[in-house]
Design a protein around this nucleic acid. Structure first.
Lengths: 285, 285
DNA sequence: CTACTTTACGGTATGCGTAAGCATT
DNA sequence: AATGCTTACGCATACCGTAAAGTAG
């Protein structure tokens, strides 16, 4: 069997044209390559080079050989990558979250149930989550709608109602509830990684100026020391995380009240049985 | 990069189940495999085995790894085979002949034109020759019809008329010519490797009993010492290769008079220019 | 007791680098 | 002179086989 080392060296020579340069790139000496290429020819029983006193060129067969060699090298690298990826997949659970609150609530629960596993959490709009579950990129996902396909196993895990937190001086603060269109055009403080909520805001309040904060502590500090409206939700209100001097007004648009669903592939349902048993209708509220 | 040697050993362990047996099959010692498998795990940075004091088993990752390893091994073997095959293809010309006479005449000519090349000649019915030219299995072919497709370059190189050689006592020997149907039912001595002629005989004289001879000298000896009819042709008659005590009677069926065409891919026309120049309309006659 | 793995040890062969030689531009 | 391939030589090490120890069935 031809060793990978020889194929690497052949490929390098094909790429760089001279043994000297190839040797340099491979961090080895040039006589090493002379010997290796000779060995390769010996093992194949086929000449790969045109040898002049001073110069080495690939023969027609050599050119082909270098191309084929690349395939083998790709296969070899693939092997490494796949094995590592597979092992990793055994030790990590990848989860797609469509919103921050489910992540906050579920992450510790998942950590308990799958002790020793690494949890890799994505946060984004959930429009692609079904595909990512199918492809095995995610093992679990939290959607804000109930997936139709029978290939998914799914359980409702609660709901969230969006509020707008306004300084008590703000005229809107006196209404019992508002609509998103009332907020359109305002400058609003906003955290950046909020999943599908980004889409809701972009669509319903296209003219608002969002002051995006990547860092949560910066967001909190700005919120406390400014008059900017911020979004909050039933989850934070119920947890008593309200801000003094501000009034939380319910947003009446239907998009601002959503249910959450925990989803996995039906075929993997039993793997996650314990987790699904642990969550209930109102885990999030 | 992971060396092939390690992958071979992994695959062997996966196949045979114990290091001891794998070592035996690989003609190496068992401690060698212990070390190699450890090295593989080290280089991948991933455990592949479940180790008990007395027993070694592939882990889930290890099972996958062994499968992937096989792909790499296949790619490596493929590399060897392809390089050898390509080199060989540079030194051999494969030719399909639809009949023996063209082979007899052309082989020395081709040997002259392509000095140092190995000539690999096939003899069979030419119904598949066009495909084999297209696939590069043949570089040249002699057909008994003119191919239509413009992807082929083609030149007529002669014709051959079939005769039946009969002992002078045979009643048919007095006819000026016969038809194949007249021969149907006779026992006839025949060489086995005669290309498309086999089909002609099979179709036109289905009831004849052919005494097939693989060996040409055996065929000649039997022909000389028996009364069996044999086929001959214009080529042999013109060359004076007739047998005493026998009369050659022309076979009048149109199938028994055929033209021959030398064919190559149009795209390779210039490679074979010299050969085509050397042959002419009546190279075979 | 047998079968298997692992560890330890010592030898060897394989591959490597340096140096020198040689040819070509 | 500079560049590039090859050969020669000595060395390091990587790999291998034997031997021995340990463990489970």
């Amino acid at each position: 069997m031809i060793e990978i080392r020889l194929l690497e060296q052949l490929a390098a020579f094909a790429e760089y044209g001279t043994l000297s340069e190839a040797a340099e790139k491979l961090h080895t000496s040039q006589p090493t390559l002379t010997r290796s290429m000779k060995q390769l020819e010996d093992e194949l029983g086929v000449p790969l080079f045109i040898r002049r006193k001073n110069h080495l060129t690939l023969s027609e067969t050599g050119i082909r050989a270098a191309e084929y060699a690349k395939h083998v090298l790709v296969a070899d690298r693939d092997f490494e990558a796949k094995v590592r990826a597979y092992d990793r997949s055994l030790h990590t659970i990848s989860i797609g979250f469509c919103a921050p609150v489910p992540q906050t609530i579920l992450t510790p629960m998942i950590n308990n149930v799958f002790d020793g596993m690494t949890i890799s959490a994505d946060m984004s709009d959930d429009s692609l989550f079904e595909d990512k579950l199918r492809q095995g990129i995610y093992q679990l996902a939290v959607l804000h709608y109930k997936p139709e396909s029978p290939e998914f196993f799914c359980k409702k895990i609660g709901n969230e109602q969006l509020y707008i937190s306004l300084p008590s001086g703000n005229p809107l603060a006196f209404y019992p509830e508002v609509h998103l269109c009332d907020l359109n055009g305002l400058s609003i403080l906003l955290l950046s990684r909020i999943g599908f909520w980004s889409n809701v805001h972009r669509e319903k309040t296209p003219d608002s100026k969002y002051l995006l904060q990547v860092d949560e502590s910066a967001f909190v500090e700005l919120a406390e020391n400014s008059e900017y409206p911020i979004f909050t939700s039933s989850y934070f209100i119920r947890a008593g995380q309200t801000m003094t001097g501000r009034i939380d007004v319910r947003i009446a648009d239907p998009e601002c009240s959503t249910d959450y669903y925990l989803v996995c592939l039906s075929s993997e349902q039993k793997k996650y049985k314990h987790l699904f048993e642990l969550v209930h209708e109102n885990t999030i509220s």
